[in-house]
């Protein structure tokens, strides 16, 4: 019985942590970028404030829109939430942890992306189509790298179950610095940047027609629906950062049912993801956005890195 309670509460804590933490991470990155550029920048909690404000605003739908426009944000948020719920972020034993397969998480995220693209296409404006097309292209190119990279991570533990991978990493600390892990980490970082729409892949803070990707899809949203889309996007950031952090440095995660361990886990997760966010923000600061048609090179590089990671893993086992 305690197992159920523990799993349930851990799941809830994960969802709340990522739900609140995601926007905070986005805010943090904006802050870091602003500081690095010599500006003061908005407070770290600004994204949360924006969300609250948007949630109270009027819902506006374009005349030619279909129910998909309203449904897409819900799907985005729900799929990301479920992915968060089943992944081992705070605890290695969340509810449905046995389903926390890498493939499940990847395809849940893909479902979210597809829903976002469909939302963008629904109104039938040029920008929506442009954003959807670009986002799907980037997603299609990033996905192989993502999948193969996580396969590389799952090779040593012979399982694609995330809790198992973390458990066996905890048991074998020496794996962390293996060449396979490091290659996979590099690939994953590239993928995460692409999937979360950060520079050099996309610039989330611009509405410049020629370059925007994700923002183009959300142009037709307003009010609570815009809030959902944005929130889903930041939860995605939170989830991916947490996963990267936990897959490589799982220490701190709660493995048994004590309050202390959970508190420690939340704290360590926050610390780890902040570090990741810091790193990504620094990359953003130091690089310029790539042209759309240069992106394949970057993502192909990520793919090659991940395949290398698998091969190295096979060779060095």
């Amino acid at each position: 019985m305690t197992g159920w309670v523990y799993a349930g509460s851990a799941t809830l804590i994960q969802v709340v942590t990522v739900g609140l933490g995601g926007p905070l991470l986005v805010g943090l990155m904006a802050k870091v970028k602003a500081r690095a550029e010599g500006r003061v920048g908005a407070p770290v909690v600004q994204p949360l404030r924006d969300l609250r404000k948007l949630a109270t605003k009027e819902r506006l739908h374009a005349r030619h829109a279909s129910p998909v426009l309203a449904l897409a944000p819900v799907v985005i948020v729900a799929s990301t939430t479920v992915a968060v719920a089943i992944s081992p972020l705070v605890s290695t034993r969340p509810l449905l942890g046995s389903s926390a397969d890498i493939l499940a998480v990847v395809y849940l995220l893909l479902t979210g992306s597809a829903a976002a693209a469909l939302g963008g296409l629904d109104v039938g404006t040029a920008f929506g189509g442009m954003g959807a097309s670009r986002a799907m292209t980037i997603g299609a190119l990033a996905e192989p790298a993502l999948l193969v990279a996580v396969i590389a991570l799952s090779l040593p533990s012979h399982s694609s179950n995330l809790p198992r991978i973390m458990a066996s990493t905890l048991a074998h600390p020496d794996w962390v610095l293996g060449p396979s892990r490091l290659l996979a980490l590099a690939a994953l970082v590239i993928v995460v940047i692409a999937e979360t729409g950060r520079i050099p892949v996309d610039n989330p803070s611009t509405h410049l027609e020629l370059t925007m990707v994700h923002e183009a899809m959300t142009l037709e949203y307003a009010g609570s629906e815009l809030a959902l889309v944005t929130w889903g996007e930041s939860m995605r950031v939170g989830l991916l950062f947490s996963l990267v952090a936990n897959l490589f440095v799982p220490w701190g995660i709660s493995t048994h049912a004590t309050v202390l361990s959970v508190v420690v886990a939340v704290a360590s997760l926050a610390a780890k993801t902040m570090l990741v966010a810091l790193g990504v923000a620094l990359i953003e600061v130091r690089s310029a956005k790539l042209r759309l048609f240069r992106l394949p090179e970057l993502l192909a590089g990520g793919f090659v890195l991940s395949v290398l990671a698998v091969v190295t893993g096979l060779v060095t086992r």
Partner: peptide
Amino acid sequence: VALIGVMSLVWLLSQNRTARHARRVDAWGC
């Protein structure tokens, strides 16, 4: 079950007081 649950929850929460039905407007298109 989880997906449907979360979707219903989100759906319910996003139905805010100001407008149960969305207002129909022209597409913005920048």
